[in-house]
Design a protein around this nucleic acid. Sequence first.
DNA 1: CCGGGCCGTTGACGTAGATCAAAGCGCTTC
DNA 2: GAAGCGCTTTGATCTACGTCAACGGCCCGG
Lengths: 244, 244
Amino acid sequence: MATHITAGRGTRPLPDENPCVACEVREFAVCGALDPEELAQLSALMTQVMVEAQGTVLCEGDPATFLFNIVEGTIRVHKLLPDGRRQITGFLYPGDFLGLAVHDSYAYSAEAITDSRLCRFPRDDFYTLMRQMPRLEQRLLGMASNELIEAQDQILLLGRKTAQEKIASFFLMISRRAARRGQPENPIHLPMGRTDIADFLGLTTETVSRTFTQLKTSHVIRLLENSQVLLADQGALSSIAQGQ
Amino acid sequence: MATHITAGRGTRPLPDENPCVACEVREFAVCGALDPEELAQLSALMTQVMVEAQGTVLCEGDPATFLFNIVEGTIRVHKLLPDGRRQITGFLYPGDFLGLAVHDSYAYSAEAITDSRLCRFPRDDFYTLMRQMPRLEQRLLGMASNELIEAQDQILLLGRKTAQEKIASFFLMISRRAARRGQPENPIHLPMGRTDIADFLGLTTETVSRTFTQLKTSHVIRLLENSQVLLADQGALSSIAQGQ
DNA sequence: CCGGGCCGTTGACGTAGATCAAAGCGCTTC
DNA sequence: GAAGCGCTTTGATCTACGTCAACGGCCCGG
């Protein structure tokens, strides 16, 4: 039940230069709001952490001692019911923020799907710094508002969409998010397995698989090698996602 | 598609005294974080608005010109699919905040379930003021984080729980929220109809009704007059909510 | 006191998606 | 290159919940 982090590796003592200055995902992340001086203060708190594929980043119920920023890799966040049913509440990509907690323990678990690199901040120190940096706080509020909107979309999807509509919406979401990070939006890449997709969409692996083949057969998508998916007919995909 | 607000009524020119000082829900709301002077500044922006039962507070797609605070009544927030399928994303009670938007238009609609009174703030002015009041911003971030946690619970519920588990979780949530507002937590009050509950839990009216009678028959709840529900066996309710 | 909506409840039946089961298809390992 | 393992796909069947339909209680106006 403890957090298992491959800490240490990737950690370095910040030489003469602040590593955050050259960070490729900074503009998408919380840190994007800061000036060089503020960035230096923040990076002083930061430890880089590597988590290998299928490794645990944090566990539901553990004391919320750290906040994270994803730099490289894909993370899945989930909640479990006592009997083992799992709901994935989100997939996180570089630039995304992880670790918001209201009480002092995490309300969800997070695991790496691919080998990942994260920036880790002690929660207390981060909040203390935030009080002194209104822009940081504003940025975080903006990101939280965004997540709230996305959560509501997911609630609509889970409560009212059919399997086809869920899968189509999922493809479009992945595509949109890739575009936001400045990556190709059309052949999308799905680093997660069918079971992860199922647990994200409130379906089973079998239904996900069957729906993939339906969309494949109707030439809306094409499955390429390396878990890439070509969205062959984005118009059709959009209409399906919205329920025709 | 426009917002229909029974504005004007209830609006008054703030006499010698600041009405917020005596506000009963202030401690639960964003305003609870402020000192008297800040409160005065905030209340200068504020207009009180009445919305009668079934009236619209705001519409999905409308420009997000206002933020709201619920003072009295119950509000439902929902999203629609083009063919009319509805998902209620939340019920709001006194003290709750409404109107967070990332882009410049609302991503959801909001309607009054009972006659309601709200504090309304012009969005731009509110954000300007927020920049000058770190405590206000902190409070809002705290509330947004809270909502995010609740949204994830709802995602788990919608994606992985059975009808019984959904209904049991719903009762407990309503009870918990009543307690937070300092109201009796046990005979709970359900101002919303069966259809609202169904659209909140991703079910149909019929299934909601049937599940109510199942729980009634197994003596876990009792339906009282005035849409009150007695949680007769909270232990049983909790186990059901978690999947035994 | 009577008639007509509007909810909520109950019943009969249908179906989308779950479950159970097995086969295909890369991987890695030796 | 054979064996083995994990993941995906496909098929057959089952079921929780949706759909369709009818009924009953309650309120409200005449």
